[in-house]
Design a binder for these strands. Sequence first.
DNA 1: GTTCAGGTGAGCC
DNA 2: GGCTCACCTGAA
Length: 322
Amino acid sequence: MKFNSLIDMGLVQESGQTSQAPWGLINNIYSDIIFVKNTPILVNVFQEDINSLSMNYEFQLKDNSVNASIDDISENDIKKEVSRIFDLDFDLDKFYRYLSNDSKLKPSAKFCRGLRLFLAKDYFESFVSSIASANNSIIRWTKSISKIRQKWGNEIQFPSGTFYTFPSPEILKSVYEDDLGEYEGCGRTIEIECCIKNLKSCGVGYRAPYMKKTSEIFTIETDIQEIPTMKYEEAFETVLDLPGVGPKVADCILLYGFGFREAFPSDVWIKRIISYLYFPGKDISVDKVREFGMEKFGAYAGYVQLYLFHHARKSGLMKKLK
DNA sequence: GTTCAGGTGAGCC
DNA sequence: GGCTCACCTGAA
Protein backbone atom coordinates (compact mmCIF):
# COMPACT_ATOMS: atom_id res chain seq x y z
CA MET A 1 0.00 0.00 0.00
CA LYS A 2 1.21 3.42 -0.86
CA PHE A 3 1.17 7.01 0.37
CA ASN A 4 1.66 9.78 -2.13
CA SER A 5 3.10 12.37 0.28
CA LEU A 6 6.70 13.44 -0.24
CA ILE A 7 8.92 11.75 2.37
CA ASP A 8 12.53 10.59 2.64
CA MET A 9 12.21 7.64 5.01
CA GLY A 10 15.95 7.18 5.51
CA LEU A 11 16.34 10.83 6.46
CA VAL A 12 13.42 10.65 8.91
CA GLN A 13 14.75 7.50 10.55
CA GLU A 14 18.31 8.74 10.93
CA SER A 15 17.50 12.31 11.91
CA GLY A 16 17.86 11.67 15.64
CA GLN A 17 14.35 12.67 16.66
CA THR A 18 14.05 11.48 20.24
CA SER A 19 10.46 10.21 20.14
CA GLN A 20 11.86 6.75 19.43
CA ALA A 21 15.01 5.04 18.20
CA PRO A 22 15.23 4.34 14.45
CA TRP A 23 13.11 1.37 13.40
CA GLY A 24 14.86 -1.92 12.63
CA LEU A 25 16.43 -1.86 9.15
CA ILE A 26 16.78 -4.92 6.92
CA ASN A 27 17.09 -4.76 3.13
CA ASN A 28 16.00 -1.12 2.97
CA ILE A 29 12.82 -1.90 4.91
CA TYR A 30 12.25 -0.24 8.28
CA SER A 31 10.11 -2.28 10.71
CA ASP A 32 8.59 -1.72 14.10
CA ILE A 33 5.58 -2.60 16.20
CA ILE A 34 2.77 -0.09 16.48
CA PHE A 35 -0.41 -0.49 18.51
CA VAL A 36 -3.83 -0.03 16.98
CA LYS A 37 -6.74 -0.60 19.36
CA ASN A 38 -4.27 -2.18 21.81
CA THR A 39 -3.28 -4.77 19.23
CA PRO A 40 0.39 -5.05 18.26
CA ILE A 41 0.93 -4.75 14.52
CA LEU A 42 4.23 -5.08 12.73
CA VAL A 43 4.62 -2.31 10.18
CA ASN A 44 7.18 -2.34 7.36
CA VAL A 45 7.86 0.94 5.59
CA PHE A 46 10.03 1.46 2.51
CA GLN A 47 10.56 3.64 -0.56
CA GLU A 48 9.68 1.99 -3.82
CA ASP A 49 12.59 3.69 -5.51
CA ILE A 50 14.98 6.25 -4.14
CA ASN A 51 13.98 8.93 -6.61
CA SER A 52 10.26 8.84 -5.98
CA LEU A 53 10.35 9.93 -2.32
CA SER A 54 6.96 8.42 -1.71
CA MET A 55 6.44 5.72 0.84
CA ASN A 56 5.02 2.21 0.81
CA TYR A 57 3.98 0.16 3.79
CA GLU A 58 2.70 -3.28 4.65
CA PHE A 59 1.69 -4.83 7.96
CA GLN A 60 1.47 -8.17 9.77
CA LEU A 61 -0.52 -9.41 12.74
CA LYS A 62 1.26 -11.61 15.24
CA ASP A 63 1.51 -15.36 14.87
CA ASN A 64 -1.22 -17.47 16.51
CA SER A 65 -3.31 -14.40 16.90
CA VAL A 66 -6.72 -15.48 18.14
CA ASN A 67 -8.43 -12.25 19.15
CA ALA A 68 -6.82 -9.90 16.68
CA SER A 69 -8.08 -10.42 13.21
CA ILE A 70 -8.20 -7.85 10.49
CA ASP A 71 -11.97 -7.76 11.02
CA ASP A 72 -11.58 -5.95 14.36
CA ILE A 73 -9.12 -3.42 13.02
CA SER A 74 -9.75 -1.91 9.66
CA GLU A 75 -6.89 -1.39 7.26
CA ASN A 76 -7.86 2.24 7.34
CA ASP A 77 -7.16 2.44 11.11
CA ILE A 78 -3.64 1.17 10.47
CA LYS A 79 -3.12 3.51 7.54
CA LYS A 80 -4.23 6.49 9.61
CA GLU A 81 -1.83 5.60 12.42
CA VAL A 82 1.13 5.18 10.05
CA SER A 83 0.22 8.48 8.40
CA ARG A 84 0.07 10.21 11.80
CA ILE A 85 3.47 8.86 12.95
CA PHE A 86 5.21 10.19 9.81
CA ASP A 87 3.23 13.47 9.81
CA LEU A 88 2.18 12.86 6.21
CA ASP A 89 -0.60 15.47 6.28
CA PHE A 90 1.92 18.26 6.92
CA ASP A 91 2.13 20.42 3.78
CA LEU A 92 5.82 20.31 2.86
CA ASP A 93 5.41 22.32 -0.36
CA LYS A 94 3.94 25.19 1.58
CA PHE A 95 6.74 24.91 4.13
CA TYR A 96 9.36 24.99 1.35
CA ARG A 97 7.80 28.17 -0.02
CA TYR A 98 8.16 29.63 3.48
CA LEU A 99 11.84 28.57 3.67
CA SER A 100 12.60 30.06 0.27
CA ASN A 101 11.59 33.50 1.55
CA ASP A 102 14.54 33.52 3.97
CA SER A 103 17.95 33.28 2.32
CA LYS A 104 19.41 31.78 5.52
CA LEU A 105 16.86 28.97 5.59
CA LYS A 106 16.57 28.30 1.87
CA PRO A 107 19.58 25.94 1.52
CA SER A 108 18.24 23.57 4.19
CA ALA A 109 15.16 22.74 2.08
CA LYS A 110 17.23 21.18 -0.70
CA PHE A 111 19.47 19.29 1.72
CA CYS A 112 16.59 17.85 3.73
CA ARG A 113 13.95 17.39 1.06
CA GLY A 114 11.39 14.88 2.34
CA LEU A 115 12.29 15.23 6.02
CA ARG A 116 9.27 15.09 8.31
CA LEU A 117 8.50 14.75 11.99
CA PHE A 118 8.86 11.24 13.41
CA LEU A 119 6.02 11.30 15.93
CA ALA A 120 5.69 9.03 18.95
CA LYS A 121 4.00 5.71 18.40
CA ASP A 122 3.74 5.59 22.19
CA TYR A 123 3.89 8.62 24.52
CA PHE A 124 5.64 6.79 27.35
CA GLU A 125 8.37 5.63 24.98
CA SER A 126 8.91 9.19 23.78
CA PHE A 127 9.34 10.47 27.36
CA VAL A 128 11.87 7.82 28.37
CA SER A 129 13.71 8.00 25.06
CA SER A 130 13.97 11.78 25.23
CA ILE A 131 15.26 11.68 28.84
CA ALA A 132 17.85 9.12 27.77
CA SER A 133 18.97 11.41 24.93
CA ALA A 134 19.95 14.30 27.20
CA ASN A 135 23.65 15.10 27.20
CA ASN A 136 24.20 12.00 25.09
CA SER A 137 25.33 11.04 21.60
CA ILE A 138 22.88 9.67 19.05
CA ILE A 139 24.90 6.45 18.67
CA ARG A 140 25.03 5.69 22.39
CA TRP A 141 21.39 6.68 22.83
CA THR A 142 20.27 4.30 20.06
CA LYS A 143 22.20 1.39 21.59
CA SER A 144 20.72 2.05 25.04
CA ILE A 145 17.11 2.11 23.78
CA SER A 146 17.66 -1.10 21.85
CA LYS A 147 19.01 -2.85 24.97
CA ILE A 148 16.08 -1.64 27.08
CA ARG A 149 13.63 -3.14 24.60
CA GLN A 150 15.44 -6.47 24.47
CA LYS A 151 15.74 -6.75 28.25
CA TRP A 152 12.25 -5.67 29.33
CA GLY A 153 10.01 -5.37 26.29
CA ASN A 154 7.45 -7.97 25.27
CA GLU A 155 8.82 -10.46 22.77
CA ILE A 156 6.32 -10.90 19.96
CA GLN A 157 6.56 -13.40 17.10
CA PHE A 158 5.49 -12.20 13.68
CA PRO A 159 5.64 -14.19 10.44
CA SER A 160 8.78 -12.31 9.46
CA GLY A 161 10.55 -12.60 12.81
CA THR A 162 10.76 -11.71 16.49
CA PHE A 163 10.34 -8.13 17.66
CA TYR A 164 10.35 -6.42 21.06
CA THR A 165 7.95 -3.74 22.23
CA PHE A 166 9.09 -0.85 24.39
CA PRO A 167 8.48 -1.84 28.05
CA SER A 168 5.53 -0.45 30.00
CA PRO A 169 5.89 2.12 32.83
CA GLU A 170 4.88 -0.59 35.32
CA ILE A 171 7.84 -2.73 34.26
CA LEU A 172 10.39 0.06 33.90
CA LYS A 173 9.65 1.69 37.26
CA SER A 174 10.72 -1.44 39.11
CA VAL A 175 13.83 -2.57 37.21
CA TYR A 176 17.17 -2.52 39.03
CA GLU A 177 19.06 0.73 38.70
CA ASP A 178 22.65 -0.55 38.63
CA ASP A 179 24.88 -3.60 39.22
CA LEU A 180 24.85 -3.17 42.99
CA GLY A 181 21.05 -2.89 43.13
CA GLU A 182 20.71 -6.03 41.05
CA TYR A 183 23.31 -7.87 43.15
CA GLU A 184 21.55 -7.01 46.41
CA GLY A 185 18.08 -7.40 44.90
CA CYS A 186 18.62 -10.99 43.83
CA GLY A 187 20.01 -11.97 47.23
CA ARG A 188 23.64 -12.00 46.03
CA THR A 189 22.95 -15.23 44.15
CA ILE A 190 25.07 -14.09 41.22
CA GLU A 191 28.47 -12.41 40.98
CA ILE A 192 28.28 -8.64 40.74
CA GLU A 193 30.37 -8.80 37.55
CA CYS A 194 27.60 -10.84 35.92
CA CYS A 195 24.82 -8.32 36.53
CA ILE A 196 23.39 -7.42 33.15
CA LYS A 197 19.71 -6.75 33.75
CA ASN A 198 19.71 -3.25 35.19
CA LEU A 199 19.27 0.19 33.65
CA LYS A 200 22.90 1.31 33.89
CA SER A 201 23.99 -1.86 32.11
CA CYS A 202 22.18 -0.36 29.11
CA GLY A 203 24.64 2.53 29.14
CA VAL A 204 22.26 5.27 30.28
CA GLY A 205 24.56 6.38 33.11
CA TYR A 206 23.24 8.88 35.64
CA ARG A 207 19.97 9.20 33.70
CA ALA A 208 18.85 5.81 35.11
CA PRO A 209 17.14 7.20 38.25
CA TYR A 210 15.40 9.90 36.18
CA MET A 211 14.03 7.26 33.83
CA LYS A 212 12.81 5.10 36.72
CA LYS A 213 11.15 8.02 38.53
CA THR A 214 9.43 9.21 35.36
CA SER A 215 8.16 5.66 34.80
CA GLU A 216 6.70 5.64 38.28
CA ILE A 217 5.03 9.02 37.79
CA PHE A 218 3.57 7.69 34.54
CA THR A 219 1.74 4.96 36.45
CA ILE A 220 -0.01 7.49 38.71
CA GLU A 221 0.12 10.95 37.11
CA THR A 222 -3.05 12.13 35.41
CA ASP A 223 -1.83 15.54 34.11
CA ILE A 224 0.25 13.79 31.45
CA GLN A 225 -2.84 12.31 29.80
CA GLU A 226 -4.16 15.84 29.24
CA ILE A 227 -1.10 17.09 27.33
CA PRO A 228 -2.56 16.54 23.83
CA THR A 229 -5.43 18.91 24.65
CA MET A 230 -3.24 21.54 26.35
CA LYS A 231 -1.86 24.77 24.95
CA TYR A 232 1.91 24.67 24.34
CA GLU A 233 2.91 26.77 27.39
CA GLU A 234 0.89 24.66 29.81
CA ALA A 235 2.17 21.44 28.24
CA PHE A 236 5.75 22.74 28.55
CA GLU A 237 5.37 23.45 32.28
CA THR A 238 3.73 20.05 32.85
CA VAL A 239 6.53 18.15 31.14
CA LEU A 240 9.24 20.23 32.87
CA ASP A 241 8.09 18.86 36.24
CA LEU A 242 9.37 15.38 35.41
CA PRO A 243 12.82 14.35 36.67
CA GLY A 244 15.50 14.48 33.98
CA VAL A 245 13.42 16.86 31.89
CA GLY A 246 14.81 20.37 31.35
CA PRO A 247 13.87 22.88 28.62
CA LYS A 248 15.62 21.00 25.79
CA VAL A 249 14.13 17.59 26.58
CA ALA A 250 10.71 19.12 27.26
CA ASP A 251 10.67 20.68 23.79
CA CYS A 252 11.83 17.39 22.22
CA ILE A 253 8.98 15.54 23.93
CA LEU A 254 6.46 18.17 22.86
CA LEU A 255 7.67 18.45 19.26
CA TYR A 256 8.73 14.89 18.35
CA GLY A 257 6.35 13.17 20.76
CA PHE A 258 3.18 15.20 20.65
CA GLY A 259 3.61 17.26 17.49
CA PHE A 260 3.65 20.75 19.07
CA ARG A 261 5.21 22.41 16.02
CA GLU A 262 5.67 25.76 17.79
CA ALA A 263 8.38 24.19 20.00
CA PHE A 264 12.00 25.06 19.13
CA PRO A 265 14.24 22.54 20.94
CA SER A 266 17.46 24.42 21.66
CA ASP A 267 20.77 22.77 22.51
CA VAL A 268 24.36 23.88 21.99
CA TRP A 269 24.24 22.91 18.31
CA ILE A 270 21.14 24.94 17.52
CA LYS A 271 22.69 27.75 19.51
CA ARG A 272 25.81 27.61 17.32
CA ILE A 273 23.81 27.42 14.11
CA ILE A 274 21.44 30.26 15.02
CA SER A 275 24.33 32.42 16.25
CA TYR A 276 26.26 31.76 13.01
CA LEU A 277 23.26 32.58 10.78
CA TYR A 278 21.51 35.40 12.61
CA PHE A 279 23.95 36.82 15.20
CA PRO A 280 27.44 36.45 13.68
CA GLY A 281 30.23 37.06 16.19
CA LYS A 282 27.89 37.07 19.17
CA ASP A 283 27.38 34.48 21.89
CA ILE A 284 23.64 34.03 22.44
CA SER A 285 22.46 31.88 25.37
CA VAL A 286 20.56 28.67 24.64
CA ASP A 287 17.51 30.15 26.36
CA LYS A 288 17.59 33.26 24.14
CA VAL A 289 17.95 31.06 21.07
CA ARG A 290 14.79 29.22 22.09
CA GLU A 291 12.89 32.49 22.47
CA PHE A 292 14.27 33.78 19.17
CA GLY A 293 13.29 30.63 17.30
CA MET A 294 9.75 30.53 18.64
CA GLU A 295 9.23 34.24 18.02
CA LYS A 296 10.71 34.30 14.51
CA PHE A 297 9.41 31.03 13.08
CA GLY A 298 6.08 30.70 14.92
CA ALA A 299 4.06 27.67 13.86
CA TYR A 300 7.02 26.47 11.74
CA ALA A 301 9.57 26.69 14.59
CA GLY A 302 9.82 22.92 15.10
CA TYR A 303 10.25 22.14 11.43
CA VAL A 304 12.79 24.93 11.01
CA GLN A 305 14.79 23.49 13.92
CA LEU A 306 14.66 20.06 12.31
CA TYR A 307 15.81 21.36 8.94
CA LEU A 308 18.56 23.66 10.26
CA PHE A 309 19.98 20.92 12.47
CA HIS A 310 20.17 18.30 9.72
CA HIS A 311 21.39 20.67 7.09
CA ALA A 312 24.24 21.63 9.46
CA ARG A 313 24.92 17.97 10.21
CA LYS A 314 24.99 16.87 6.58
CA SER A 315 26.74 19.86 5.07
CA GLY A 316 29.69 19.81 7.47
CA LEU A 317 28.71 23.12 9.03
CA MET A 318 28.77 21.53 12.49
CA LYS A 319 32.44 20.63 12.25
CA LYS A 320 33.15 24.14 11.11
CA LEU A 321 31.23 25.69 14.02
CA LYS A 322 33.01 23.56 16.60
C1' DG B 1 46.58 6.41 30.11
C1' DT B 2 43.84 11.44 29.93
C1' DT B 3 40.52 14.72 28.13
C1' DC B 4 36.28 15.99 26.38
C1' DA B 5 31.28 16.48 24.80
C1' DG B 6 26.67 16.66 26.02
C1' DG B 7 21.59 18.70 29.36
C1' DT B 8 19.88 18.55 34.01
C1' DG B 9 19.65 19.14 39.00
C1' DA B 10 21.53 20.42 43.38
C1' DG B 11 23.73 23.62 46.04
C1' DC B 12 25.23 27.99 46.50
C1' DC B 13 24.86 33.03 46.46
C1' DG C 1 16.13 34.64 40.35
C1' DG C 2 21.26 33.36 38.30
C1' DC C 3 25.66 30.79 38.43
C1' DT C 4 28.77 26.71 38.93
C1' DC C 5 29.72 22.09 38.97
C1' DA C 6 29.00 16.98 39.32
C1' DC C 7 26.88 13.37 36.95
C1' DC C 8 28.17 8.66 33.12
C1' DT C 9 29.90 6.86 29.06
C1' DG C 10 32.53 6.23 25.03
C1' DA C 11 35.16 8.42 21.51
C1' DA C 12 39.31 10.97 20.47
